[in-house]
Amino acid sequence: MNMIRLGAVSRREIQRFLRIPIQTLVSPWISATLYILVFGVIVGSRISFLEGIDYIDFVFPGILMLQLVNGAIGQSSSSLYFQRWTHTIDEMLASPLSYAEMIFGYIIGAVTRALAVGAGIYLIALLFTDATPAHVFLFLFYLLVISIIFSLLGLLVGLWAEKFEHLTVLQSFIITPLIYVGGVFNSIDMLPESMQFVARLNPFFYMVDGLRYAMIGYSESPLLLGGIGLLAVALILFAAVWTLFHKGWKLRS
């Protein structure tokens, strides 16, 4: 891995989202503030939910994750698709960049955007609650792994998409619904027993639950299994993206 080449791709990706900060940073901060205000403060103050845990503290990890996911997947999918559409991808294809350097460059850009979004949301949350993570390293682990997984998924979408509206298909029809039913707003213990089994099949549940444990020390899933599962997903996605880049699928004519 050549660090100069990797640095060039990463800088390009980071500068790309910094050129449009209202769309890439301010908008998710406002959106998260509304979630925190409505679900956390206004509605949450009337909910006696779990003993010893304020509702705002329960929902905040899910709200944070939702915006992390949107930031990571939005960055890598739109960047790659736009480069394919305008043929600026040819700049990279005709250069000595290795496939790993290209992919890691996109990942670094997407993770940076997701973490910048997350950092802003975290600071906003501090205005309403004491959001000090219970397990700092675990908190950072989940932030990173979740951002990496969705930046890789974004690259798959960016390769697959044939028109702009395809970029939102995965987010609108699969990811957002699964996150919402993945225990962001409720404990899965509140679901009927048959639904609890289904909820546990939802991979997003393990992300929300892991992040929640890292923040408030409350969990409803086997954390080690969830963490290993997330790492495995990240590795499988990386292998898939690398294979497609190597084959030149929808990249090289």
């Binding site: 080449r5 790309r16 305008t86 043929h87 600026t88 700049e91």
Partner: peptide, 23 residues
Amino acid sequence: EFNADIFAPIEKVLDFVGGYFGM
């Protein structure tokens, strides 16, 4: 084709490509 990033300042277009070539 004019296949450079239309939003990037021109010196950045050159800078990124120089980086891709390990400069």
